[in-house]
């Protein structure tokens, strides 16, 4: 029987799943993914996780529990850094420990450290470590890694062309309402685990798409453009996400086809608390592009969230109509 590896649908899932899936399948393992976030998963996560953690971490705990008794191994890598000279949130580095010490009766956890801060070559070492735990030979691991990187690059290309990661991963082809109005280009900045988990973000992407919005997410912006822009900052960004967000914000200033920018942050996020402010200052001071920060947390009352989102779209459309000299609203 094939070894069954459980991959929780949380945190960096929507960033790396195609890579992880290909890698494990090439090594002859079977993959099990937890279900889409729902209230049961959220409740389980909130109950079992430390209170100070942010919502996405709590949700991740729920996904772990959703998988716990269905798999032979849980894949929860210790993600220290995924890019040169940059870190990600420290909670990722401590994630396997947090999970192990809060939840009991879990299957063995593959908690290989992935630390690409000094060199991308560490990726091979990490892959070898995972392979050895599954008793695979080195050649097979090398081959699986190559193949999975290829799959990852393909996935990235699709995203850059405008596909949303959850649509690619779940092979969904959403049927959208026919645009009833001029299509707006709205750029959305946020962590993958907030942007693509439609339970956490209260179906924000669907709401936008159903309101004649062409979505551009931070992940669709070319990495080279982001790097180039980020280099113009007077200080190097310490965070991986910070570079992405700041590079994207600066890129917005160069474009004239962006009708509005939405920054989605989760309540209590340390990285966002800095970056959202920096992004806001850049966009507001250097441009007239409508900008809003939407904060998401555990509450399921959508009224406040919808009011802000609705009013933001009204504002963008109203302004556009005004510029087009057709004065009206509503």
């Amino acid at each position: 029987m094939k070894t069954k590896i459980g991959i929780p649908r949380g945190l960096f899932f929507y960033q790396y799943y195609p890579l992880w899936k290909t890698f494990f399948e090439e090594l002859g393992a079977e993959i099990a993914v937890s279900g889409h976030t729902n209230r049961r998963i959220l409740d389980m996560g909130v109950k079992s996780c430390v209170d100070e953690a942010c919502l996405p971490v709590k949700v991740f705990f729920g996904h772990v529990l959703d998988l716990a008794d269905k798999v032979d191994y849980l894949f929860i890598p210790r993600l220290t850094s995924v890019s040169r000279k940059e870190y990600i949130c420290p909670k990722f580095g401590g994630l396997p420990d947090m999970v192990r010490h809060s939840l009991y009766g879990l299957p063995p956890i593959i908690d290989t450290e992935i630390n690409l801060r000094k060199s991308g070559k560490n990726l091979l070492n990490a892959a070898m470590d995972v392979g050895s735990r599954l008793n695979c030979d080195k050649k097979a691991v090398r081959r699986a890694l190559e193949k999975s990187l290829r799959a990852y690059r393909e996935f990235r290309e699709q995203v850059k062309k405008g596909a949303l990661p959850p649509d690619i991963i779940d092979k969904r082809f959403p049927v959208l309402k026919k645009p009833s109005d001029r299509i707006l280009n709205i750029l959305v900045i946020g962590h993958v685990y907030n942007l693509y988990d439609n339970y956490i973000n209260m179906d924000m992407l669907k709401k936008l798409r159903n309101n004649s919005v062409n979505l551009i997410t931070v992940d669709m912006i070319d990495g080279c453009i982001i790097d180039e822009k980020a280099q113009t900052l007077n200080k190097k960004m310490f965070w991986y996400f910070g570079r992405k967000a700041m590079g994207t914000a600066l890129h917005v200033l160069d474009r004239n086809d962006i009708d509005g920018v939405i920054y989605v942050m989760s309540f209590g996020c340390g990285v966002d608390s800095f970056i959202s402010d920096l992004v806001e200052k850049k966009i507001r001071r250097k441009s007239d592009v409508p900008f809003i920060i939407l904060t998401i947390d555990e509450h399921s009352g959508e009224a406040g969230f919808n009011t802000r989102l609705e009013a933001f779209l009204d504002m963008v459309r109203w302004r556009y109509r005004h510029e087009a000299d057709v004065s009206s609203h509503g």
């Binding site: 409508p290 900008f291 904060t295 406040g304 009011t307 802000r308 009013a311 009204d314 504002m315 109203w318 302004r319 005004h322 004065s327």
Partner: peptide
């Protein structure tokens, strides 16, 4: 500004 909503904020 110019007769249209230019920006808004709500208590957070």
């Amino acid at each position: 500004r110019n007769g249209v909503v230019f920006d808004f904020a709500m208590n957070t």
